[in-house]
Amino acid sequence: MYLQLQNLTKQFDNITAVNDMNVNIKKGELVSLLGPSGCGKTTTLKMIGGFLKPTRGKVILDGIDITNLEPEKRPITTVFQSYALFPHMNVQENVGYGLKYRKQYSKKAAREKVDEMLDMVGLKDFARQNVTKLSGGQQQRVAFARALILNPKVLLLDEPFSNLDAKLRVKMRNEIKELQKKIQITMIFVTHDQEEALSISDRIVIMNDGVIVQIGSPKDIYTNPKNQFVADFIGRVNTLKLGEKTLLIRPENIAITSEDTGHNGKIIQKQYMGPYTTYFIKIGEQTIQADISSITDEAWEIGESVNIKFM
């Protein structure tokens, strides 16, 4: 295993922010830490980056225990949530800053490396631009280039897209995923956005209250949530009590039909969402949500009695 978190624990006064965390990450893997705010995901990231000292446990990278190494000594870099660009430096100064104190790079070699990096993130024309004059997406790329130029063994990303608008977020996420594939870098990605985690991760670590709830591939986690919390947090879920047993079922796995299925309900509300329509159906005392694709939707009316089918 390339990066190992062993029994990683962090306590602040009486609060346990991260409790006994064990994760093994393969080389070149993109792993997301996903959970609601306060679940300990950023604390975990800070311990990996060296900005927080764990109360207990170890961080082992490539066979070496780095738990007590200062951040400047770790072969790990971070893309910060606020990007944390140096506002008094231009784009190339920001990107090249980390090379300045590495003896193996001559000034010329450093300059070439910066150019190469800027080319890769598509900011070649902005090299001398003041970073404060850049758009959010461009600033993000500078932060990314600045962290990648040092060839880190692991790249940490702390909610890097949270300050971008929805469209740009999707675009940047694709760019980063492509880049990650190209240069085969190990990445740990902190987010509270489930869609983001599902779309770019090789594996997702779901956290809640400082502990790991489930680890798995996006598909694994979506289709086989370990418990109600995971099912609720990743996507939406209906909790339906049928006799003795409780059924967890995704809204898109429910079909509405006029044929008799044995499950009868009444439509009490509907919301048109574009690609699909969400129907709120009352079955006995329970209300479930069903997402019906716009292609198959038969435009059921509010008040109508319908039968539902689980798929």
Partner: peptide, 16 residues
């Protein structure tokens, strides 16, 4: 000033 700016510099391996 965002403390992350200072952390970012440390993160890049720059002596204090």
């Amino acid at each position: 000033m965002n403390p992350e700016i200072e952390n970012a510099a440390k993160d890049l391996g720059v002596p204090k």
